[in-house]
């Protein structure tokens, strides 16, 4: 198993740093397209942490673990903020009625993208440490082809 840890501050301008690292690491394993999808899913998680767990307050830690094991990539995102209700984390992408511009959704895509781009998502809270962890998993075959 290979793994690496990244720590960023809870600021929107820091998300790109983590995203670029995740992309570069993942690209070696699963290629460009899946690496982009994993980066996008991870960035949505990190944005969600900043907005909801830390309520846009800077100065809080976000710890990201990139883990590669046989046939699977796992990204863990840890925070020490407010836990997110589990039902929110498993929402699908919103329905789009492309003929009804007035009522197009402007939000609600982030969690839907996370679920669409991951093979599995898990969320847990360690009450003793006050730590929330979201794990996203992406499987790939022996040739590095993801889904």
């Amino acid at each position: 198993m290979d793994s690496i840890r990244l720590k960023i501050d809870s600021r929107a301008d820091q998300v790109a740093l983590a995203g670029r690292c995740i992309h570069a690491l993942s690209k070696v394993v699963v290629g460009e397209r899946a690496a982009f999808e994993i980066e996008l899913a991870a960035c949505e998680v990190i944005n969600n942490v900043i907005e909801h767990a830390y309520e846009c307050r800077e100065g809080n830690d976000i710890l990201i673990e990139w883990i590669h094991r046989d046939g699977e990539l796992q990204i863990d995102v840890h925070d020490w903020g407010r836990a997110v209700p589990a039902d929110v984390l498993f929402s699908p992408l919103p329905d789009i009625d492309h003929g009804d511009v007035t009522n197009l959704p402007e939000g609600g895509f982030g969690i839907g993208l996370l679920n669409a781009l991951s093979d599995r998502v898990e969320y847990r809270t360690d009450e003793d440490e006050g730590r929330n962890t979201l794990s996203l998993f992406r499987r790939f075959d022996a040739a590095g082809i993801s889904r």
Partner: peptide, 20 residues
């Protein structure tokens, strides 16, 4: 080379701002 859900939401908001 990268758009996240917030960026996409902003583009949608601009379209809605045009009001048809």
């Amino acid at each position: 080379n990268f758009i996240d859900s917030s960026g996409l939401g902003a583009i949608v908001a601009v379209l809605k701002k045009l009001g048809g």
